[in-house]
Computed example of a mutant assay.
Amino acid sequence: MKDINTQDFRITDIFDISKAPTTIDMDASEKKVRKAMKKAGRKLGKLQDKMYANNRYSVLVCLQGMDTSGKDSLIREVFRRFNARGVNVFSFKTPTSSELEHDYLWRHYIALPEKGKFAIFNRSHYENVLITRVHPEFILKENLPGITAVEEIPKDLWEERYGQINNFEKHISQNGTLVFKFFLHISKNEQKERLLRRLNKESHNWKFAPSDLDERQFWGDYQKYFEEAISQTSKKHAPWYVIPADNKETARYLVAKTILDELCKYDIKEPAVDEEVLENINSYRIKLKGEK
């Protein structure tokens, strides 16, 4: 299998979505890719155990992508070997009436991971500079001062939000949260095929919603705003990785390998054993074996 440098998917400059591939030749069968994914997943699970005991870092993984890009199944496969106590998954859908009583970042702040844990954001705070760009009328539900109609939305609102998001991510990274942001990049034709599978396979019918077709009509707009958001917010402390996602097995492996490669750069070890315990390990062992 091809040796992959995950830094090749990291955005370090202005992002041009038209030049970003949606496929990659792994020079391996899907079976081999799946095996490599399982191996990376096991290593991640062991590393997470150490991180939980170390209790110094937390990890935030943000997943974004067009409908059908494979976010749900990726979460299931990449993190399935984690201890359940060490990972929480949040799916951010349309804000509730309670959430709309706060600023748009509030519901994401309260979902941030505790030290030693992972949080997975299935969609994230980036929805507030993506779907609201395509459907600016959604902004009106936030009851922002001075904005009662779409025509009143200031032109610099989005630039301000990019700045707020950058500050948010910088703040949490400076306090021990390691931030990973993945854009699962699929082609329009691949999305079409996946939607057709949902319609053609009875067991997958429940996954289909007519709104999927409605949103597909805005494909070009979404591509433009993903490109802009990624360009504006890929920072050293919170980088974006654009993952070719037409093949789900490959995308899962690339995400797992990226997280693993980066976490291995940190000094994450189990806490040192108390000296008294070390000195008396044999006596503790003898005491336990001598129990009747």
Rank of each mutant, 00 (worst) to 15 (best):
I4R: 12
F9I: 08
I11P: 02
D13M: 01
D13Y: 05
D16F: 12
K19E: 14
P21M: 14
R34W: 09
A40R: 07
R42F: 15
R42V: 14
K43N: 14
D49W: 10
R56F: 04
S58Q: 00
V59L: 04
G65H: 04
L74H: 03
R76D: 12
E77F: 07
E77N: 13
F79I: 06
R80C: 10
N83T: 02
V89T: 12
S91P: 14
S97Q: 14
S98I: 14
D103V: 05
I110T: 13
L112N: 02
P113F: 03
K115V: 03
A119Q: 01
N128L: 00
V129Y: 09
V129H: 09
I131S: 12
H135F: 13
P136C: 05
L144P: 09
L144Y: 15
L144V: 05
P145W: 07
I153C: 07
P154E: 13
L157K: 15
W158C: 00
W158A: 04
R161A: 08
I165Q: 13
N166P: 01
N167T: 05
G176V: 03
L196G: 00
R197N: 11
N200C: 08
K201D: 15
K201S: 11
S203G: 00
N205H: 15
N205P: 03
K207V: 04
K207H: 13
F208L: 12
S211T: 12
D212A: 10
L213R: 06
D214I: 12
D214R: 15
E215K: 06
Q217W: 11
W219C: 10
Q223Y: 08
Q223I: 14
S234N: 06
W240I: 10
I243F: 05
T250H: 04
A251T: 01
R252C: 06
Y253F: 14
Y253L: 13
L254F: 04
A256V: 09
L260C: 08
L260H: 04
K265S: 07
V273E: 11
E279R: 15
N282K: 14
K287T: 13
K287F: 15
L288M: 12
K289Y: 11
K292M: 12
